[in-house]
């Protein structure tokens, strides 16, 4: 067999360690910022960490976190899905409408129906993007309008109230299991499942490969079209799920559910360290980003800051997050270059 002279392999170089650390630093950094924010707020007002308030925080983060996980899948492939807010709206209204039409529908069926509706809408996005080869930003900006318009047409100004939905369903929106809100458990399950898939399955790794270098992905025989399509279906399905949970949590649905949330979701993903040009980041980071954004909103009033500062604080956070991320990756890149001369 062919063997050229073989010097010993040092499996751990500084560059690799640093790169791995960078991965950790990203997620840890957000967790740390979150911890700091909670600690400061708690110090100012201990009631911030009351059981009820924690529950509210988790509940408040749930829907944004689920949307952020879906968005992260898409952003990792160097695409973007601006239609998630509209998909959520349609799915939420569909949930209400289905309960009105068939009051006895089991909750599980309802969840599946929401996911299926979202998946179909996501398939519309993915189909246009993968087969007609058109940019995702344009297509999903278009479907943002189309899906929302369909929502309005369907709702025709109607509002579906809590009274139209079964109490069991609404209870799901507020109940807790071992102190954890049921809705947050949904989000956690989604997060862990998606996170595990992206790390440990070929399909997941290929999503990163596509985002990292689309041309190379094609030359490597990765079915990029199919994978990107699947990413949009997943993002749509999660937005559909979020729509059902939205209905359970708020009890009142009109055609405006989730209106304008798309940029919030992208913001959560970006704050969570997912590179907007694909290839790196994780869904854990994206979910943390969602929790952080929600917590800031909750913490400001507690800290005695006018709630009118919320938006500005969120904006500043986004800028800080992408700025820090750039500084960090620049350092990693430099150290990787220095370690370059490795072969004999």
């Amino acid at each position: 067999m062919m063997t050229v002279d073989a010097p010993p392999v040092r499996p751990q170089t500084r560059g690799a360690r640093l790169a791995r650390r960078a991965f950790l630093v990203r997620e840890l950094g957000i967790a740390l910022a979150l911890g700091l924010l909670v600690a400061v707020t708690f110090a100012v007002n201990p009631r911030f960490l009351s059981a009820q308030n924690i529950k509210d925080l988790l509940l408040g983060s749930t829907i944004l976190a689920i949307l952020a996980v879906g968005q992260a899948i898409v952003v990792i492939t160097r695409n973007v899905d601006l239609s998630v807010g509209s998909i959520l709206g349609l799915s939420a209204f569909a949930t209400g409408a289905l309960f009105v039409a068939a009051p006895g529908t089991p909750i599980a069926v309802m969840l599946l129906a929401g996911v299926a509706l979202g998946a179909v809408l996501g398939a519309v996005n993915g189909g246009l993007i993968a087969t007609a080869k058109v940019p995702a930003l344009v297509v999903t900006l278009g479907t943002l309008y189309v899906f929302r318009g369909l929502d309005y047409m369907w709702a025709t100004g109607r509002q579906i109230n809590a009274a139209d939905m079964p109490p069991g369903f609404l209870r799901m929106g507020t109940d807790t299991v071992l102190g954890m809100p049921v809705l947050a458990l949904f989000a956690a399950a989604v997060l862990i499942a998606v996170g595990y898939y992206l790390r440990h399955y070929r399909g997941g790794r290929e999503l990163y490969a596509i985002g990292s270098d689309p041309a190379a992905a094609r030359l490597s025989g990765i079915p990029a079209g199919r994978r990107v399509f699947a990413a949009f279906v997943a993002s749509g399905a999660l937005a559909g799920l979020a729509g059902v949970l939205h209905a359970a949590r708020f009890g009142t649905i009109d055609a405006n559910a989730g209106l304008g949330s798309e940029l919030n979701v992208v913001a959560a993903v970006v704050v969570g360290g997912v590179a907007i040009f694909g290839g790196s980041g994780s869904v854990y980071g994206a979910a943390l980003g969602a929790v952080l954004l929600t917590t800031i909103r909750a913490a400001l009033p507690v800290l005695g800051i006018s709630p009118f500062w919320q938006g500005a604080a969120v904006g500043a956070l986004i800028l800080a997050a992408i700025g820090l991320d750039r500084a960090l990756s620049a350092r990693v890149a430099r150290s990787l270059r220095e370690r370059n001369v490795t072969h004999v």
Binding site: T3, V4, T342
Partner: peptide, 18 residues
């Protein structure tokens, strides 16, 4: 890599390679 006689860390990202 041993067969090729090069010292490259399999875990390092490809970014930054010459």
């Amino acid at each position: 890599f041993a067969r090729l006689g090069v010292r490259l860390d399999p875990d390092r990202p490809a970014r930054g390679l010459s």
